[in-house]
Design a protein around this nucleic acid. Structure first.
Lengths: 340, 340
DNA sequence: CTGAAAGCGCTTACAG
DNA sequence: CTGAAAGCGCTTACAG
């Protein structure tokens, strides 16, 4: 392999001069710089990442701790990953992707070995067992998802409370009086997916404040269960005129369910989901929905993380907890309820 | 940070002894080993990855070159990624994920800098511009997807030709005489997605051999275009009784299209897709399909790559091109055609 | 069975 | 404006 020594020899300068010429960290005469650049080009020199990391204590790599949980919704995950990798690249960082089911152990190894300069955690649970490890690590961390305790980390999440309110108020203002809310499976909550509660409780409160009936239920995360569940809920609440979905699988299954019941939205039922626009387009989902903005959240997390890594902020600038406000993408699946 | 020197001091031995005790590369007395292990545990020592990589010329990292193309189907991508990361972890490797739109440049940087010991390429095109870079790199590479020229790399792909034949023959044997095949968008082909041709040509041949009419068409990769396209195709070929889908978005859109046309499968139309079982479950797709096995392909690629990296095979063992044979998952969406 | 030392390829004070 | 040298934290021949 070609090393900095080869470049130095070819350019007729010292290795340190090559290093400085490349980093720009001290003034170099135009002539020498040109010779170095030429040698770099001709030899095809790329610095050895391990050597550089060892010398600088900086790897220029960000760790991305994802968990591919069987009962959580995979496609959304890719969008988070995409937001993170894209913005990391823009900032000059590579991504080390871990999907180890043993999150704390993987995180400890990755941070202790100094493979990464910082870490983004996806799928953060209310009481996430990776957080103690992250707080003990020397590198900064950014989370996508809101834990109970946010000390020592930067946190980014959709404002699920506001999302619940927006969903309910949108249908209330159209005149609906009885709604069904289908949430994620109970496993997700048990695992600490507090966002399910956050949306549901806010929706219940908003419904109570407006005098609406809101039937809150859990749904599973795949077929055929979720389809049966939707049928059962529609059977159980025949007078409900609005359906709120905080469950991507339910949204994906709903067109078929409506077909089977000979119903259509918004004629027979107004529907509001909570998922990304990308998801809606790819899966032909014709329902209005709260944009869950996974790519945007991933980008926000990386940008803040990079700011910390590069200490653009004072050493221990206060950590942030930032919520993306929900926006309703209107796809025409809501209308005033049919008079009964 | 705690270094091997700290461990050595705590255990009262030399740094080399610590290294050997940890690697097992030479005999160590039980007593010394115990002292070392204790010190490692108490100090929480993890070797510095950069230093180790520099000393051994091995990073224990595999590069994963994915491309998040806007008109290709995202959810399938996550399954490839999952197969790759999971099997890499099993083999003791971490994953460096690159989604750089400039694939050749990213690949060159990652390999030249010795960040990775080997590379897996996803989304491989017929004439993939990353291949020259990969062949010139000192690390081995494994591909998911079949390029025109396979020299110097290990290649894994679904047997799309056989898939086309299986689809046609399955419907032929049920008595269908006129079929429609919806492929990926033309962009995908122009970009070098030769698998589209491979499946289509084999299907056309099989149809010709059996005396069937097969209307081959392209479809777009998202809504609402793909829905309109399906309607148009069904309008144009009213006598077709079988529908073959080599296009995930089309499969996702079809339930709604059938609903809108008051058709059902297999009563009015027999349908066979080509996608993964995971995809079918998540998106409530009730159609029989050829299993595309993304996770399996990812695993195969990594296993072969690791074998090369670790030279378990003779230095330049012949490179492999391995096809996964298509299996038809029966979800009950095919039947003999309705008599007209 | 163990240790002292060289070397991996960089960066960065230190000197001039 | 440039160079010689130390040092980052490992591994591994070399010696005993």
């Amino acid at each position: 392999m070609v090393t900095i020594g080869d470049v130095a020899r070819a350019a007729g300068v010292s290795r340190s001069t090559v290093s400085y010429a490349l980093s720009g960290k001290r003034a170099i005469s135009d002539e020498v710089r040109a010779r170095v650049e030429r040698a770099v080009r001709e030899l095809g020199y790329t610095p050895n990442a391990g050597a550089r990391a060892l010398a600088t204590s900086q790897s220029k790599v960000i760790g991305l701790l994802a968990q591919f949980l069987p009962d959580e919704f995979a496609p959304a995950m890719l969008q988070y990953i995409q937001g993170v990798t894209d913005s990391a690249r823009d900032a000059g960082y590579d991504i080390l992707l871990s999907s180890d089911p043993n999150g704390p152990q993987a995180l400890k190894r990755i941070t202790d070995s100094r493979m990464v300069d910082g870490v983004v955690l996806l799928n953060v649970a209310e009481d996430d067992d990776r957080l103690p490890v992250l707080r003990a690590a020397p590198q900064p961390g950014a989370l996508v998802g809101l834990p109970a305790d946010c000390t020592g980390v930067d946190v980014f999440d959709l404002d699920f409370e506001e999302a619940g309110r927006v969903m309910v108020e949108h249908l209330a203002s159209l005149g609906h009086r009885e709604l069904i809310l289908v949430s994620q499976p109970e496993h997700v909550i048990e695992r600490g997916g507090a966002y399910v509660w956050r949306l549901q409780n806010a929706a219940l409160e908003a419904a109570a404040a407006r005098g609406l009936a809101l039937h809150a239920a859990f749904g599973s995360s795949g077929q055929p269960e979720i389809g049966r569940r939707l049928h059962a809920l529609l059977d159980a609440h025949p007078d409900a005129t609005g359906l709120l979905l905080n469950n991507e699988a339910a949204a994906a299954a709903l067109p078929t369910v409506l077909h089977e019941r000979h119903l259509s939205a918004p004629g027979d039922l107004s529907v509001v989901g909570r998922y990304s626009d990308e998801f809606a387009r790819t899966f032909s989902l014709p329902f209005s929905s709260i944009e869950s903005a996974p790519d945007r959240l991933g980008r926000m997390a990386v940008r803040q993380l990079v700011r910390r890594i590069e200490k653009q902020e004072p050493e221990s600038a206060p950590h942030v907890v930032r919520f993306v406000s929900p926006e309703l993408a209107d796809r025409g699946s809501t209308a005033p309820p049919r008079r009964t």
